[in-house]
C-alpha cells in the first residue's frame, strides 16, 4: 500500500500521505496483533480455516486519516500476489491495496460501503477488506511476522 496521489501545483496540502506527515502516534501506541502476517505495503493476512482474511494495518489507517471510501476487490476474481486489488481513500489521499498472497476473492466486506470508517476504528476486525481462497497457502510464510513488521516500521522511521 502506498500513496498514489499526484497532481498539484504547490499551493496545496495534498502531497502529504503515508510516511510524509510528521508522526502522530508512536509505534508503541499502534495495534500490531501477533495472529496475522504483514506486507511491506501495510496489509495484513490471517488464516481462518480454508480462507485467508485480509485488511490494512493500524499504521496504514492512522497515516491515511479518516477513510471515506473503500474500493473492495472484485468478488470471485483471481489476483496474483502483489497485484493491486482495491483502494482506500481518505479525505486527502488515495492508497492502493495490494494482494498479500495470490488467490481468488471468496468474500468482501460490504459494510465498508456505508461505513468506511470501520477501517479506522477496527482495522483487524470489523474493518477487514476481503476473504481470499489462496492458490498456495504456503505463500503466508513469505509474509512478515509481528516482530519483523515492527522492525520494518522502526527502520522506516529513522
Amino acid at each position: 500500500m502506498r500513496n498514489c496521489y499526484g497532481y498539484c501545483q504547490g499551493n496545496c496540502i495534498h502531497r502529504t500521505s503515508i510516511g510524509k506527515g510528521i508522526k502522530m502516534k508512536e509505534i508503541s501506541q499502534l495495534v500490531i496483533p501477533e495472529d496475522v502476517r504483514y506486507t511491506r505495503d501495510h496489509e495484513w493476512a490471517r488464516v481462518e480455516g480454508e480462507i485467508v482474511r485480509m485488511g490494512v494495518t493500524d499504521y496504514a489507517q492512522e497515516q491515511l486519516g479518516d477513510i471515506v471510501f473503500v474500493e473492495v476487490p472484485q468478488m470471485g476474481r483471481r489476483y496474483a500476489k502483489g497485484e493491486e486489488c482495491g483502494a482506500l481513500e481518505s479525505v486527502k489521499a488515495v492508497a492502493e491495496v495490494y494482494m498479500p498472497l495470490g488467490g481468488q476473492i471468496a468474500g468482501i466486506n460490504s459494510t465498508l460501503e456505508g461505513s468506511p470508517g470501520l477501517v479506522n476504528s477496527s482495522p483487524y476486525t470489523d474493518g477487514w477488506i476481503a476473504e481470499v481462497k489462496p492458490s498456495e497457502i504456503s505463500d503466508m510464510e513469505g509474509l512478515m511476522t509481528h516482530n519483523e513488521y515492527i522492525e520494518m516500521l522502526k527502520g522506516s522511521r529513522q
Binding site: 499551493n11 502529504t16 506527515g21 510528521i22 486519516g65 470508517g117
Partner: peptide, 19 residues
C-alpha cells in the same frame, strides 16, 4: 499532524480527524 504548506509548518489535522 504537521505538514509543510506554502513554506510554513502547519497543522493538517488534529487527532480527532478531518471529518
Amino acid at each position: 499532524r504537521m505538514v509543510e504548506f506554502g513554506g510554513w509548518e502547519m497543522p493538517i489535522e488534529y487527532p480527532s480527524g478531518v471529518i
